[in-house]
Design a protein around this nucleic acid. Structure first.
Length: 892
RNA sequence: GCGGGCGUGGCGGAAUUGGUAGACGCGCCGGAUUUAGGUUCCGGUGACGUAAGUCGUGGGGGUUCGAGUCCCUCCGCCCGCACCA
């Protein structure tokens, strides 16, 4: 698989480009010249390109290679286009794996983390990324989290922090609290343990203060993928509706034996117009009324238990039947005191949303319809679709949730849905029950406040002191950072900060009495919610940022990362930006002007006869297509070729970037990661793909050497006149340049690379055509220009090779520092154009004609073409359509 | 269940956004160079057909002078989700 011959015989091919030597040489040259160091007060327009910073797991993977290769193309391209580019790198360095490693290897999380950072930094540096390493930050460093603690205190002052008792998801293995979104299928996202519900006092950031703003601003993020915006929109989940108080018939409350003392059932609805179609009330299994009723009703208690077991997983919910339990409680219809509605506990009503209770209108909600079909509660349609006859309109298996005319609804009859919603809201607002209006218009959000407390050691300490006398006291700013103690042990579960002998014991800054520190640390999403700000002034000792610098560099012009952060990281960062603005740290609303989410790197999977996963290096493949078979590297034991999946350690289908770079070089790895698939889609790692990329490295090098041979030792001055061939070469080069430019700007790297291949193919053919014959100055000049253009075009993807070629073409200095050539688009316009000639929409021929030929001449020439005459078959042309510069269509 | 996306040669994918379908790469076939293999170079490669040509972008229908692209409908695959009242 690995081309051994390349390693063994370089000396026999002296013209071969020595990847390893050259790459190391240029990386050192860039570093020595510090050409990627960004200064803040550069007068050129700024461009901030950022890739999501990695967690320092210890080794980079191919996903990183792809992500950072993309960002580096953008950075190098923008630099060449005259921008002052900020392209920094850092480490998302807090988090659980460091504690697990500490437990297993008896090291400290800090030691483990910093060793990983050193290893990964070296790996990233071997990729030849144009990063400003002088701005490197690690979120676990006190010089970073000190400022995060300051931000927390500022947010506290600004009223953006809340301390609430709340039911939390407790992960019994990790012994920590998880956010709702960190609970997947009822299990912790890291530990996989079944999550329990516990009541704890937690710190929250009030992201819901910005619900509306975070939602509305999405419309302005026009350089974000629509998919991500939609996901955030759904996550925020705004709905306009009506909160309605239903009066409970006291006679039906007897079973509750006076507890709770309630006379009303509050519900929330977005469809008040359907109130006359109501057939039942449904409350969530964990609704207080349900709990109260269950106290005296073992069957109900059992039912609630059963629904709990259902869990929250999508699969379970999908297959679950709509089930309910009649509590015996009855409420009065708001518009008809005689009309009684039964109150059910239902498995499809969520306590967390709205009021945890609804009224069910089966005709116009599928869930409600399914429910009444099971319990025989009847269906009355109240909205009749337009153009259907109300008298005969009935509901079958499907609820109708569209617009229409109100029917069977007393005073609403004849209204539209919107009018009916308004009328019901207006009337109920005016009815008073027990001194309050019966209904209130309400806007609800699914978004909830962000709980940031984590019962962990390896995170940013929350700078708070608990005093028995003074209560919750912020740590004075002068005492920041609250540093993590280094002498901690991980020999037992739970938070080491909590059991540390001295760390948490302090005196209260207010009263001087003995007090204790907050031992919770912050969710690591806090760390990554402002690192892009810190990069603008990374070594500021006294403050999180310099507002002038932050405002100069932000927003990030191009942010690149995985789709898995579509909601949490990006939403939290958007919130943080608003919170920091409120506290005066910057003056902008959106942190990321352009967002790109790249696809994964995937690879085939292999298993042996026992079903054990095998690494790609342990197998060999023979044949192709349907005859493709895999065997163990040694021997003939067959291996099963499994589906192509995301590279993962567990399936052993990973490829180590280190090995690829050592064998083929960084340029090959980068090129391949960009060439084969559209960047937003998954790319399949194949050996053939890497080798193809490697071949291209060598081919571009040879081509450059050939071009250099034609140019000769002296570069000719541009001549006054170019001959036909020289003009042709210039046209090819400039056409390619224009296309490549467009494609890089649209981040369509695979198409861009295809255009580079095309240019190289054309130039190679032109070089071949010349052979050993003498070459005029005009042609030499054209080749010199084309060679420069070629090198510039692939320089963002294969920067090392580009430097070597740039030097071979006789240039001093770095191509990485030279300006992008200007595409002369006027060269692309020739005075002849080629029309495609169709007859009845079918291509029959081509017509090359003067650019300025008029319609009559084009029509005449087109109709005279042999193939056109033949296809017309003596029939007269009924119509001739001419699209200027493109196509002629003859209709017969 | 809801929402979103996708479907193009043997494979990955292009297609100026309604105007030459299959760019470019991989693979495959043939040739040259080479002691041989590999490398490198040249040519060919959607299907059917000797050819003129016919067919062809998941299936069916429609709009249009013209559809991979727009509309309707069906099928298949992928992703997201919180039954959101």
């Amino acid at each position: 698989m690995i081309p051994i011959s390349l390693r063994e015989r370089p000396a026999m091919r002296p013209e071969r480009y020595n990847v390893r030597e050259s790459e190391a040489k240029w990386r050192k040259a860039w570093a020595d010249a510090q050409i990627f160091k960004t200064v803040n007060d550069d007068p050129r327009p700024k461009y901030y390109v950022l890739e999501m910073f990695p967690y320092p797991s210890g080794r980079i993977h191919m996903g990183h290679v792809r992500n950072y290769a993309m960002g580096d193309v953008v950075a190098r391209y923008r630099r060449a286009r005259g921008f002052n580019v900020l392209h920094p790198m850092g480490w998302d360095a807090f988090g659980l794996p460091a504690e697990n490693a500490a437990m297993q290897n008896n090291t400290s999380p800090a030691e483990w983390t910093y060793a990983n950072i050193a290893a990964m930094r070296a790996q990233l540096q071997s990729m030849g990324l144009s990063l400003d390493w002088s701005r490197e930050i690690a979120t676990c460093d006190p010089s970073y989290y000190k400022h995060q603690q300051k931000l927390f205190l500022d947010f506290l002052d600004a009223g953006l922090v809340a301390r609430k008792k709340s039911k939390v998801n407790w992960d019994p293995v990790d012994q920590t609290v998880l956010a709702n979104e960190q609970v997947i299928d009822g299990r912790g996202w890291r530990s996989g343990a079944i999550v329990e519900q516990r009541e704890l006092t937690q710190w929250f950031l009030k992201i819901t203060d910005y619900s509306d703003d975070l939602l509305a601003s999405l419309d302005r993020l026009d350089r974000w993928p629509e998919k991500v915006r939609l996901m955030q929109r759904n996550w925020i989940g705004r709905s306009e509706g009506l909160a309605v108080r239903f009066v409970i018939d006291p006679a039906t409350l007897g079973a509750l034996k006076g507890e709770p003392q309630t006379s009303e059932l509050d519900i929330y609805t977005t469809r008040p117009d359907t109130l006359f179609g109501a057939k039942f009330m449904a409350i969530a299994p964990d609704h207080p009324l349900a709990a109260a009723a269950a106290k005296h009703d073992p069957a109900l208690k059992a039912f609630i238990e059963e629904t709990r077991k259902l869990g929250t997983s999508v699969a379970a919910i999908e297959t679950a039947e709509k089930k309910g339990y009649d509590t015996g409680i009855r409420v009065a219809h708001p518009f008809d005191p005689e009309w009684r509605l039964p109150v059910y506990v239902a498995n499809f009503v969520l306590m967390e949303y709205g009021a945890g209770a609804i009224f069910g209108c089966p005709a116009h909600d599928q869930r409600d319809l399914d429910f009444v079909r099971a319990y025989g509660l009847g269906v009355t349609p109240v909205v009749c679709p337009p153009e259907l006859d109300p008298a005969s309109f009935t509901i079958g298996a499907k609820a109708y949730d569209g617009n229409g005319v109100m029917i069977n609804s007393r005073f609403l009859d004849g209204m539209t849905v919107d009018q009916a919603k308004e009328e019901v809201s207006r009337r109920l607002e005016q009815i008073t029950v027990g001194g309050n209006p019966q209904a209130k218009r309400e806007i609800n959000y699914k978004l909830r406040d962000w709980g940031i407390s984590r019962q962990r050691y390896w995170g940013c300490p929350i700078p708070i002191i608990h005093c028995e006398t003074c209560g919750v006291v912020p740590v004075p700013v002068k005492d920041l950072p609250v540093k993590l103690p280094e002498d901690v042990t991980f020999d037992q579960p739970g938070n080491p900060l909590n059991r540390h002998p001295t760390w948490k014991h302090v005196v209260c800054p207010q009263c001087g009495r003995a007090a204790t520190r907050e031992t919770d640390t912050m969710d690591t999403f806090v760390d990554s919610s402002w690192y892009f700000v810190r990069f603008t002034d990374p070594h500021n000792f006294s403050a999180p940022d310099d507002p002038a610098m932050a405002d100069h560099w932000l927003a990030v012009d191009q942010y690149i990362g995985g789709i898995e952060h579509a909601i949490l990281h990006l939403l939290y960062s958007r919130f943080f930006t608003r919170a920091m603005r409120k506290c005066g740290y910057l003056d902008l609303d959106e942190p990321f002007a352009g967002l790109f989410t790249q696809g994964m790197v995937v690879h085939e999977t292999y298993r042996d006869a026992d079903g054990q996963w095998l690494a790609p290096s342990e197998i060999r493949v023979e044949g192709d297509g349907d005859r493709r078979r895999a065997f163990l590297v040694e021997g003939s034991e067959p291996v099963e070729i499994g589906p192509t999946e995301k590279m993962s350690k567990s399936k052993r289908n990973t490829i180590d970037p280190d090995e690829i770079i050592a064998t083929y070089g960084a340029d090959t790895a980068r090129w391949f990661m960009l060439s084969d698939s559209p960047p937003e889609r998954d790319v399949i790692w194949t050996e053939a793909g890497v080798q193809g990329a490697y071949k291209q490295v060598q081919r571009l090098w040879r081509l450059t050497c050939e071009i250099e041979r034609i140019i000769g030792p002296e570069r000719p001055a541009p001549p006054a006149d170019y001959g036909d061939e020289a003009r042709r070469i210039r046209r090819i080069a400039h056409a390619a340049l224009a296309k490549i430019e467009d494609e890089i700007e649209r981040l369509r790297f695979n198409v861009c690379i295809a255009a580079i291949y095309e240019l190289a193919n054309e130039l190679a053919a032109a070089v071949g055509a010349i052979g050993e014959s003498p070459v005029g100055d005009d042609l030499r000049a054209a080749f010199a220009e084309a060679g420069d253009i070629l090198v510039h075009c692939f320089a963002p993807m294969m920067p090392h090779l580009a430097e070597e070629c740039w030097e071979a073409l006789g240039h001093k200095g770095f191509v990485a520092q030279s300006s992008w050539p200007v595409a002369d688009r006027s060269l692309l316009v020739s005075n002849h154009v080629t029309y495609v000639v169709q007859v009845n929409g079918k291509k029959r021929g081509e017509l090359t004609i003067e650019r300025d030929a008029d319609a009559k001449r084009i029509e005449g020439a087109a109709l005279a073409l042999d193939a056109v005459v033949r296809a017309m078959n003596d029939k007269p042309a009924r119509k001739v359509i001419i699209v200027p510069l493109r196509i002629v269509n003859v209709v017969v």
